[in-house]
Design a protein around this nucleic acid. Structure first.
Lengths: 207, 207
DNA sequence: ACCTGAACACCGTTCAAGT
DNA sequence: ACCTGAACACCGTTCAAGT
């Protein structure tokens, strides 16, 4: 007979061993999938456990509670957003173009990942209980800050604490994202293309 | 003996009659209170029923489901916001002051009623299922639109469809409100006073 | 016409017990 | 060390039955 601790089954296949092997990863994977399928409302811990092929109690070995699992989803979201913004910075050498492209990339990512975005900024998440989320969020925010700094260095926008420029900009981008995701803009008769609205607003705020 | 349908007890006192008399009003009242006490997360239909002194099934005579009761809360919120904005319009004859005051009043209301605001724009609410909420929201939005129109008439801001100006403005105000309620601005080191941030951003966007 | 009681199918969470 | 089974205290929702 082989050694008692056999190679763990993958997340998708039937498990033959009593121990899962990599349950934490399997759970966050299932959670990521579930949020995208059913949205933040339909997200339940038991369903996540079911999809990972374990009992309802098993997740508690790896996450303190449901909020902590949602925090993992939110963290992943911020990482993705960060990568998207990073790629946008790299793709534009012209600074005023870069600034506009960043804003548009932010909103585009939010609108194309509405469920992630709602978890990242929704009410289910208690950020005081999950500093990792705040950290991941700060990293995404720094992309914004960096672009603003570069714009200041070349004199494109006035010098000063970049946070003073970032406040209005981030608020604007977040507002456009949220109101678009919730269809609130169209509900009051604003049917302007999201991309166009973003660019127009950013120009007004920046230059 | 008096008539069989006796005078109904008030919402707060013990009910002596089998029929409540004004359960719908009592339920929305309890809902309003509960949201402010426990936030959108702690809001349950059974607790609302308990506070109104009826069985868990009773609300279903007056609301199709939990979302419809939340819609009533959101509608109330939009009515309150509308009244606040109205009062602000009335209080300022100078138009550029009025525009700035409106924005600040919007954010101030949102930040001082975080639970309402989160219900009004949160994920629990399905606006396609409750047109009353959309209508109440549109009425609040029209205050914004009216002020913009007046600013256009006096040449304070360029003429055109007022919605084109309202889009960026509303997005900004909503973003500031949401990021402030969620403490997201402070989490990334932006500690500027909310009022100041609002005024500064609005000036940049408008004038 | 309006409300209750009991029931159903779910939750999140805990904990002794299994491997 | 990690997972299960059963249990607890809740939910939202339905429906026959009461008044």
């Amino acid at each position: 007979m082989a050694r008692p601790r056999s190679i763990p089954a993958s997340a998708n296949s039937q498990r033959t061993t009593y121990h899962h092997g990599d349950l934490k990863r399997a759970l966050t994977g299932a959670a990521l999938q579930l949020v995208q399928e059913k949205g933040p409302k339909g997200f339940t811990l038991r369903e996540v456990a079911r999809r990972a092929g374990v009992s309802a109690a098993a997740p508690y070995r790896h996450f303190a509670d449901k909020a902590q699992l949602l925090a993992a989803v939110a963290t992943q979201g911020f990482v993705q957003l960060h990568e998207t913004l990073d790629a946008t910075v790299a793709a534009h050498s012209d600074l005023s173009e870069q600034a506009l492209a960043m804003g548009k990339a932010y909103v585009r990512w939010a609108v194309s990942h509405p469920d992630y975005y709602q978890v990242m900024f929704g009410t289910e998440l208690d950020k005081t209980e999950s500093p990792e989320v705040v950290l991941a969020g700060a990293r995404a925010f720094e992309d914004l800050l960096d672009t603003i700094k570069r714009c200041q260095e070349t004199g494109l926008i006035p010098a000063g604490d970049p946070r003073e420029t970032a406040g209005p900009i981030w608020s604007l981008l977040h507002g456009i994202s949220m109101l678009t995701i919730g269809s609130d803009l169209t509900h009051v008769g604003i049917r302007e293309d999201t991309e166009a609205l973003t660019e127009r607003s950013l120009r007004q705020l920046l230059f």
